[in-house]
């Protein structure tokens, strides 16, 4: 299966989305990421039982924090799919990149440059 998806995504592999911490997400934005999304297994299918539920909670917490500090909670998202769903992976990637493009660059990044 040869699928293409946007090339401006930097994939960071983790053993389970449960490993994704709110601090990782915040640091990514501090370093200038325009958006961050986590792709986990289907809910109920986590090999470690609840990793993807934890990830979703942290994504929700990150949304609130990012809204508070003015970066925008809509720049972070969680997606779920099965490991066999390559086309869906590509679809989520394209959708998310389009959404972030509409939102424009991370405001922090712009202000850091200006400073």
């Amino acid at each position: 299966m040869r699928l293409s998806y946007p090339t401006n995504i930097k994939i960071i592999r983790v053993p389970c989305t449960g490993k994704v911490d709110i601090l990782h997400i915040l640091r990514a934005f501090e370093k200038g990421a325009d958006g961050v999304y986590a792709v986990g297994c289907m809910e109920g299918d986590c090999h470690f039982t609840s990793g993807n539920f934890r990830a979703r909670k942290r994504i929700e917490q990150a949304k609130v924090l990012l809204d508070t500090v003015g970066v925008g909670g809509e720049r972070v998202e969680m997606f779920n799919l099965a490991s066999s769903e390559g086309p869906l992976f590509a679809k989520f990637a394209t959708e998310f990149v389009d959404k972030i493009k509409d939102l424009g660059p991370n405001p922090i990044k712009l202000k850091k440059k200006a400073a």
């Binding site: 709110i22 601090l23 915040l26 508070t68 003015g70 970066v71 405001p107 850091k112 400073a115």
Partner: peptide, 21 residues
């Protein structure tokens, strides 16, 4: 330590966004 990191990161972004050094 972790909460220190989260708070510090959030505050840095907040002040940057306010264009405050």
């Amino acid at each position: 330590k972790k909460e220190v990191g989260i708070l510090a990161s959030a505050l840095r972004m907040y002040f940057l966004n306010q264009e405050r050094d």
